[in-house]
């Protein structure tokens, strides 16, 4: 894989080739397709019934209809977005194909862009049926969030890519021994992202940390929209600025980890 070489421009044919590679893989394996669908469906059904139960027994939640199920769907965009990115990357490690790619004219930025597109495709396969289930089973129309949904989606997917890029770099450097980080890192930010509760319930010092994470702004924004019926553009803008920094940092970290992998010979032994 050649170095960044952005001055030479990106080649769409190489990005398309990588997307085609993952598409072939997805279409050749029904367990991979099923995996994309069943967990989001399970999540929305479980949390949908919890929301129904709470709404029947608490006035606040009755008024704040959809905050739980909305949070579940948005969390899935964040989590599944990162997994969609990272699993495509891991497929190369599992297939021992990373050396072929590293030796090809494919540039790191092209590889990462292809992984981003695949995360969107995988996300669409998993989350769109999830939102339809929420509509038919619980009468929660996720798309009724309207235009703010675009801001929520963009900020969550940018964060998921930043995490995906970083953990992919870790796996490149450390081999499949670091694979567990791919599956668990997003959960580390879960308590601080305040998915199911407002930031105000956290102790003061933890609130400072929580506001460093873009998803916190999204979930606060979602609650403001569903409970107060107001769109907090300021929150979305702040999240966007932090995401820009996170993406730049994760890309820099990926290149540094790739260089370190080449220095330590990790690319020759991409096992455990």
């Amino acid at each position: 894989m050649s170095e960044l070489a952005l001055h030479r421009g990106l080649a769409m044919h190489r990005i398309n080739a990588m997307i085609l590679r993952y598409w072939y893989l997805l279409m050749s394996s029904w367990p991979r397709l099923l995996e994309l669908l069943y967990w989001p469906a399970l999540q929305v059904i479980t949390w949908g019934f919890i929301q129904l139960y709470i709404a029947e027994n608490a006035n606040f939640f009755a008024r704040a209809g959809g905050t739980l199920i909305g949070a579940v769907i948005l969390w899935d965009i964040l989590f599944r977005g990162q997994l969609g990115f990272s699993i495509s990357f891991l497929e190369e490690m599992w297939a021992r194909n990373i050396g072929n790619l590293m030796m090809s004219p494919l540039k790191p930025i092209e590889f990462l862009l292809a992984l981003m597109v695949m995360s969107l495709i995988r996300l669409a396969i998993g989350v769109i049926p999830m939102t339809l289930l929420a509509l038919f089973l619980f009468h929660f129309n996720f798309y009724s969030l309207g235009l703010p949904l675009i801001a929520f989606f963009c900020n969550l997917i940018f964060t998921s890519w930043a995490v995906g890029i970083f953990v992919s770099g870790l796996v490149l450097r450390n081999g499949l021994g670091a694979e567990s980080i791919v599956w668990t890192l997003m959960f580390a930010i879960m308590p601080l992202a305040c998915i199911y509760y407002p930031v105000s319930v956290l102790p003061g010092w933890l609130q400072v940390v929580a506001w460093m994470l873009p998803p916190t702004y999204v979930f606060e924004g979602m609650r403001a929209l569903l409970i107060e019926h107001s769109f907090r553009a300021d929150l979305m803008l702040a999240a966007l600025v932090i995401n820009a920094g996170l993406l730049a940092a994760s890309f820099g970290a990926f290149l540094a980890l790739l260089r370190s992998a080449k220095k330590h010979g990790s690319l020759l032994s991409s096992g455990e």
């Binding site: 394996s29 297939a95 021992r96 194909n97 072929n100 090809s104 032994s269």
Partner: peptide, 21 residues
């Protein structure tokens, strides 16, 4: 030290690498 992706057919693999090159 490297393999071609196992689930893809020979033609698909060669198509992808042909496009990369």
């Amino acid at each position: 030290y490297v393999d071609m992706p196992m689930r893809l057919t020979v033609r698909q693999n060669l198509t992808i690498f042909g496009k990369l090159y």
